[in-house]
Design a protein around this nucleic acid. Sequence first.
DNA 1: GATGAATGAGCGTTCATTCAT
DNA 2: AATGAATGAACGCTCATTCAT
Lengths: 202, 202, 202, 202
Amino acid sequence: MEPVNGSLRRSILDISRKMLVDEGFNRISMRKIAQKVGCSATSIYLYFKNKDALLHSLIEEGFEKLYEILSALNHPDKSPARKIEDYCRAFINFGLNNPEYYEIMFQLHPKHMERYPVEKFRRARRNTNLFMNALQELNDERMKSPEDARIWANVFVANIHGGISLLNAGRVDSRVEREKFIDTLVAGILAGSGELKLSHQT
Amino acid sequence: MEPVNGSLRRSILDISRKMLVDEGFNRISMRKIAQKVGCSATSIYLYFKNKDALLHSLIEEGFEKLYEILSALNHPDKSPARKIEDYCRAFINFGLNNPEYYEIMFQLHPKHMERYPVEKFRRARRNTNLFMNALQELNDERMKSPEDARIWANVFVANIHGGISLLNAGRVDSRVEREKFIDTLVAGILAGSGELKLSHQT
Amino acid sequence: MEPVNGSLRRSILDISRKMLVDEGFNRISMRKIAQKVGCSATSIYLYFKNKDALLHSLIEEGFEKLYEILSALNHPDKSPARKIEDYCRAFINFGLNNPEYYEIMFQLHPKHMERYPVEKFRRARRNTNLFMNALQELNDERMKSPEDARIWANVFVANIHGGISLLNAGRVDSRVEREKFIDTLVAGILAGSGELKLSHQT
Amino acid sequence: MEPVNGSLRRSILDISRKMLVDEGFNRISMRKIAQKVGCSATSIYLYFKNKDALLHSLIEEGFEKLYEILSALNHPDKSPARKIEDYCRAFINFGLNNPEYYEIMFQLHPKHMERYPVEKFRRARRNTNLFMNALQELNDERMKSPEDARIWANVFVANIHGGISLLNAGRVDSRVEREKFIDTLVAGILAGSGELKLSHQT
DNA sequence: GATGAATGAGCGTTCATTCAT
DNA sequence: AATGAATGAACGCTCATTCAT
């Protein structure tokens, strides 16, 4: 997968990622990427079989990046509740700061991406698993079984995702302050699982 | 579903709505719609000024339909908690049963739809307002101010939306039962706002 | 040629003539004409076989109109030199005030208008003939034969046409005052045929 | 004329120039050009940004070509009167022999060509300036000021243009011999400016 | 490793025109 | 006398991709 000389490949990924965030997936074309990278459109095909393959690489990188961010918060001396809150906030920040990235990671329907090997989406699970593990560390009886923790972890991710998605799509009532919305969203998530509470009031 | 006679406009709406979910907004073309409808591409322009106008009509229909469903649940003799739960479940059902509508209603970024009059999205508020009103009926001190109720209503919608979105996108862990996921999602939402509880255990 | 009820036909001609001047021949469509007239596009076909036929009618009217203007200047008690100058100025005014009209009358290549019966262009000759007749009234020996007068008449029209054409196309040096250009153009024409002079200096 | 190898750009220019006179600017399409050239419509865009840019190139080439022809006649040991007559005849020949160039150079209204940078039309001035310079070399008091010479130069060009335009459009009376018409046109121009005379009688 | 040349397919849209009523 | 419904053809243009070098 790695080319002999990786620098051009790297540039293509970096630039197309930025363009993705700035202009949206359907608006970027191989031509435009090549132009910004400073190579010919043909050259992209040396490193990526086609546009889809480039997209797949971006998705993978996205999941990787998010996992790096979240797993860095997983200090052993942190309370599980605190971990969960930190995960939530970091997840939200990631989604808001990389909206188009986020779109291809979580909103792209597999049907629209048939060529993408489904199993790769499982990488996303690693992120959900962080939530699951923290939930199991809680002494909550509802979370004792791994099945329950998994369900709740998926629900948490869904809640987070819903917030990011509506914010990015501009569908949150404009009279609601962004900050308060996020705080309430996180508070709701934590409360939802039972005894969790926000670590501080804002 | 066939154009047969008269309502070609209706056929165009129905078919393009269905195509939306199968192929995504940017992948459907006027030609393809026409082909499936069984008319010429030109004919679409007899009923819709352009592609955007067609999409706008679909969005409007979606909001209208959802509001019809939710507002029908707003019986005066129902407890506010029960109302909220009913709203949640009906909302989720709508999203899962009409993924085509859902995608354009909640996932389409305004940036990609610049010509859509933003004010029309305010129709969506009517749905959020149903939640808000029910929340204010609760004797929860956190919901006393309309501002707080509005925030929570938006958070609820975000939570619901996140669940629908991940389910439709096939991003919920396949080991998690769909039913349980939905129940937990709703339970989490209700618990999130404080004293609310599921009306029945599953 | 006249329809039973001529009013709609009249409206179509008037409006399409105005649109022609305002927007150019290729920019007007049957649809747009119909819209401005306030009838259906189909209705235009009741009075004109097709778009070309409508254009032909406009051309005919143009020649007719120009002839009306020019022939009105042909008073018997006017000197031939004065007649010629009056013709020139009236011709120029017509061309400048009806630029698009003018274009279809004088610039439209027969090749592009194959369906237009060539003989109809002979109507335009009536205008040239006014010049020819006036030239023959002069006691200029060079104009004695009708052949010579005809040549000079055609040259005069060409000179006038050249001025109108360049002015309308914005191809006259912008540092040259429009008024002076026209005066010099007319002076040149009159001098060109020998002893003619401008009736007044400006 | 065939694309053969290398200069596809050249073929596109040549062929579209020829098509221009046969079919008119608005009637030629990128597709039709491509078809005649023997390449794909897309390929044209490799050499010209869009249809307008192609047209602009043609216009520029036309002005360049005409200037080459006229300026070659500007020998220092030639009398100004002779220069002017030579310019006239060469100009006319150019217009009659290259009607395709001519149409886009002098007949295309800026309104229909909004994107063409107006300043480029100033190249055409170089041609008018040749007339202007020759006129100033005359010992004609009416031409002493540069302003007057400029006006007369523009009038000369207008006269020439009118003749070419009507000839090319087939609007000169068919009973008039082409040769005589041209001779008379030139004679008229020369006489128009005062003491100029044809260098020979035909 | 990199590219310039080239293309077929497709896009949203407009057009003149026809036909049944 | 007039029209609404419908369409085939064409438009300028962009796209992802290929291929010879």
